[in-house]
């Protein structure tokens, strides 16, 4: 039962619980009209202590499409935190108005503090560099929708694998499914942290490979998950010049890929995916944003315990 629970860490949900969320998302995608009023009379509060328009709009669109309503704030300055109110006190106040809360906070662990003090479900909408579970759910639902299942594929994860929390959560989440091969593509200095390599990949006996250049593995991938590499993250100019093009997805690289490969990206992108491939049917990142809304709709329904009438 997910009713009344919080979602703080993507690993808070078992594989079975995730599957129940994804099944509901499938049904919503199939018949959105049947879900248009299920949250009538319910209120979602979006407590965003730092701006993240994309995530906030996704939560709000999800609630509005379920027939519920939303209220909240979108920066610390416009909240009572500016006057020094604690997360705990803000949460207890919000809980007396709303039925469910989505919280984003620049400090790690803030949504956990809220959850410990909240009688209503709290969803972590991102806490610093720590967790962003609804992004992980989005990624999983997208892969599942495109491939029909969450097992048996090779995923290339490309970019800044050292600092990218999205990538760490995704690897952890995928480590619970069978027969997935990971190809990790990054400059030497931006490889995955040791704890991900040792405690997740090696400990679970997962097949993985760490390489430097995307073009060397394009033809092996079923999924390509792109993230951005910032120039400042390279240790030296020579490496940057030598490798910068390896982390930009363009038509040339796409021509080496399988016909049914899917390109994912958590968005927003800067220049790591050339706009020339947006029309390629394998470019799935805008679809992914849509799945993000559907998975939030399913999650809100599950945590509120509402069902189709």
């Amino acid at each position: 039962m997910l009713k009344g629970r919080h979602l703080i860490d993507p690993m808070d949900l078992t594989v079975e619980e995730l599957e129940s969320v994804f099944k509901l998302a499938d049904e919503i995608i199939e018949n959105p009209a049947e879900y248009a009023d299920v949250c009538k009379g319910k209120l979602l509060s979006t407590c965003f202590y730092e701006p993240s328009t994309r995530t906030r709009l996704s939560f709000e669109a999800a609630m509005l499409r379920l027939g519920g309503q939303v209220l909240g704030f979108s920066s610390a300055e416009s909240s009572s935190a500016a006057k020094g109110e604690s997360v705990r006190d803000t949460m207890m106040t919000i809980a007396s108005y709303a039925d469910i809360c989505a919280m984003r906070h620049p400090k790690e662990g803030a949504p956990k503090v809220a959850a410990l003090n909240s009688p209503i479900p709290v969803i972590n909408g991102g806490d610093g560099g720590h967790q962003h579970p609804t992004q992980t759910l989005t990624d999983l639902l997208t892969i599942r929708a495109l491939r029909g299942k969450l097992t048996d594929f090779t995923i290339g994860i490309c970019g800044d694998l050292k600092f990218g929390r999205t990538v760490h959560s995704l690897i952890k989440a995928l480590s619970r499914y069978d027969n997935i091969k990971f190809i990790l593509i990054s400059p030497e200095e931006l490889k995955i942290p040791d704890y991900i390599r040792e405690e997740i990949l090696m400990k679970n006996g997962l097949e993985f490979q760490e390489i430097e250049r995307l073009e060397d593995v394009m033809n092996e991938l079923d999924i390509l998950y792109m993230t951005r590499v910032q120039k400042e993250r390279f240790f030296n100019e020579a490496d940057y010049v030598r490798l910068k093009d390896s982390y930009i997805l363009d038509k040339d690289k796409m021509s080496m890929a399988k016909q049914d490969m899917a390109v994912l990206h958590p968005l927003p992108r800067v220049n790591e995916i050339s706009v020339e491939i947006d029309n390629d049917p394998r470019a799935a990142y805008f679809k992914q944003a849509k799945y993000g809304m559907y998975v939030r709709m399913a999650l809100i329904m599950k945590l509120l315990g509402v069902e189709k009438c």
Binding site: S86, V87, R88, P106, K107, E108, K112, V113, D127, G128
Partner: peptide
């Protein structure tokens, strides 16, 4: 970066 670093209580 932990929330406990700014909320002492």
């Amino acid at each position: 970066r932990c929330i406990t670093s700014i909320e002492q209580e």
